[in-house]
Nucleic acid binder design. Structure first.
Lengths: 342, 342
DNA sequence: ATTTAGCACTCGCGTATCGAGAGTGCTAAC
DNA sequence: GTTAGCACTCTCGATACGCGAGTGCTAAAT
């Protein structure tokens, strides 16, 4: 267990390192306002803290920097939640004041304001379309061989896909099928669509439709492809300002990751309600060894729908970012719930 | 006017610089197969070529590198079109052999294969939705206050937008209007949609519809927002491998540009049929001072629809890239024309 | 009149050296 | 338990130096 004084010193060192990005020496710690000890005393404590694994030395005659364990302790025990500044609050609220008509616009704007306020990179996932339910499907023929299938959800999200029409398919039958689906499957979560299609509607189709098989496989194919959550970014290049990314090889790695939505989703997605913090190697992904990821979930009608997150250096301003994410995710949830609740 | 020998030397130097990325000295030029002159002679010629502005020296005792004027001369007069390798041809054709159902997929794949083959960054613009014509519009109500408007074009492209419904709007009237539009405006280019809406259909509406004004402004708003061409990238990070981008500040600038589709469109769009080459400062954009952009247009049914382009260092493999772009743009045009031609 | 050999000169780059500055860790005194 | 003092360590920037690559000029060769 750490003594009161060790806590004080650990916090001082991490705070200092977060703002100045340089190893912290005993002298500069001892000069702090509330620090009534000489550099020598501090040095002894620092040595102990290093032995306990909270600090490390870049080399023998630099100051100390926090270890991953140090950061973890810091966020778990030393973080006093800080109120947002007026500027931050008004920044966030400005997103929600504008009456964006599209949900995606709201989310894109959220990502943008997040990155502006934090000057890190923000990533917003979802909303998970799988959670949303079917409002209507449409199939619009383009030619004899192809058509566009359109799926609209209750949140106003539109997915579309061009499909090749099997030869000899009866367009009128297709229309009939679409009508039946719209009647019977409205309100069904998209995840269950394929299942319901085969079970509940199987017999209905069989009765009315000639090319039952063809039709079914066509629809299945259509629904199947709607898999991915969308990923929104804000300030992709912000993180390049951090000294951690001053070599191009690492930048390349990072941006390659950004190209792969599936990977980003895996890294950022959080199912736990509330704030999640992953520091350095806790991300289990080598290019992020010197990064921390802070995420918060937002929800619609009580159910988690997506994730807002910040990617920054391990040396990031945790308390500020946490405050901002918390505030924004709650506002976003509120907006979604009031907007789409009938 | 340059002598035969000067041309030979200029070409040798540029070819060498393109492959090795290092200033070229007289000795290495003289060692070439078809070069029957001593280093001293070459030195004299190089000195002349420098005076004429085709070459420059990074510093007094390095070799020479091509100037922008040198590259320009090279692409205009010295480039012998090279046949594509088998690998390149089969790479491109593999994109078109796969029966992608969506046009966007084909284009995305084209961008990818372009970047793979060239190991530069590829950018594909369009297809310009403004050129395409209306297949159908749909308005699907979400709640009492909002609805999703969907526009489908003849190329299978789908644009959608959530719109706020004006208070007291009659849903049945809206349906009527949508039906009339689908009857009368099918096949109209999207660019003309707003215009036709007011002129041709104005009087029809006035007859049948109560809230003529409200309806019209609603539809106008909907069509108005469909402005942007879509931008597809391939190998965004490829260009980071070039020594020209070994400082992070420049990388940051570049990626900031990539975030702004409008800017990228402006820089890459080409209306001239065929291949366009912009070298260094010809791009009139500072971050591209050491880059060249090669673009080719692709067309649908004879009309230019979009642009495929490559961003590389000024020192890029022009003849190879030109060959690939030429081949791919033609194949793409062919595909579009056969696929969507009824 | 070209072309070429020879040679002095220039410049960048990698390596080695050095001193300053910042910081530590230990010891001994407070 | 705390602190002053001091030797020691390590990085970093500046300076110096030699090597290698390349040029430009002059004079000789073709």
């Amino acid at each position: 267990m750490l003594t009161e004084r060790q806590l004080l010193i650990l916090k001082a060192i991490i705070d200092d390192y977060i703002t100045h990005a340089e190893p912290v020496g005993s002298r500069s710690v001892s000069k702090r306002e509330d620090m009534n000890y000489s550099p020598a005393t501090i040095r002894n404590e620092m040595s102990d803290l290093e032995e306990l694994g909270f600090l490390e030395k870049p080399h023998s005659s630099a100051g100390r920097i926090p270890s991953q364990k140090g950061y973890r302790y810091y966020v778990d025990h030393l973080l006093s939640p800080k109120k947002l500044s007026k500027k931050e609050i008004s920044g966030i609220q400005s997103v929600f004041r504008e009456r964006f008509s599209e949900l995606e616009q709201v989310i894109q704007q959220s990502a943008k304001i997040l990155s502006n306020l934090t000057s890190y990179t923000s990533i917003v996932l979802g909303p998970e379309i799988f959670e949303s339910t079917l409002r209507q499907i449409q199939i619009i023929p383009l030619s004899n061989e192809s058509a566009v299938a359109i799926i609209v959800t209750d949140t106003g999200h539109v997915e579309n896909q061009t499909v090749a029409l099997p030869e000899g398919l009866n367009i009128h039958d297709l229309e009939k099928v679409v009508n039946i689906i719209n009647e019977r499957l409205k309100g069904v979560p998209l995840v269950h669509l394929r299942h319901k299609l085969t079970t509940e509607l199987g017999n209905v189709f069989e009765k009315y439709i000639d090319q039952y098989d063809t039709m079914l496989s066509l629809l299945n194919k259509t629904f199947l492809s709607q898999q991915h959550e969308k990923v929104f970014y804000g300030g992709k290049t912000n993180i390049l300002a951090q000294p951690e990314f001053h070599n191009v090889e690492r930048v390349k790695q990072l941006f390659n990751i950004f190209e792969e939505d599936a990977l980003v989703t895996k890294l950022f997605r959080s199912d736990d309600q509330g704030i999640t913090i992953k520091i350095g190697q806790e991300n289990r992904f080598e290019p992020f060894d010197e990064c921390s990821v802070i995420t918060a979930t937002y929800s619609f009608d009580g159910k988690p729908m997506g994730t807002v997150g910040i990617l920054g250096p391990t040396r990031m301003e945790y308390q500020r970012v946490i405050g901002i994410l918390d505030y924004l995710s709650k506002d976003l949830s509120k907006l979604l719930t009031t907007r789409y609740q009938k």
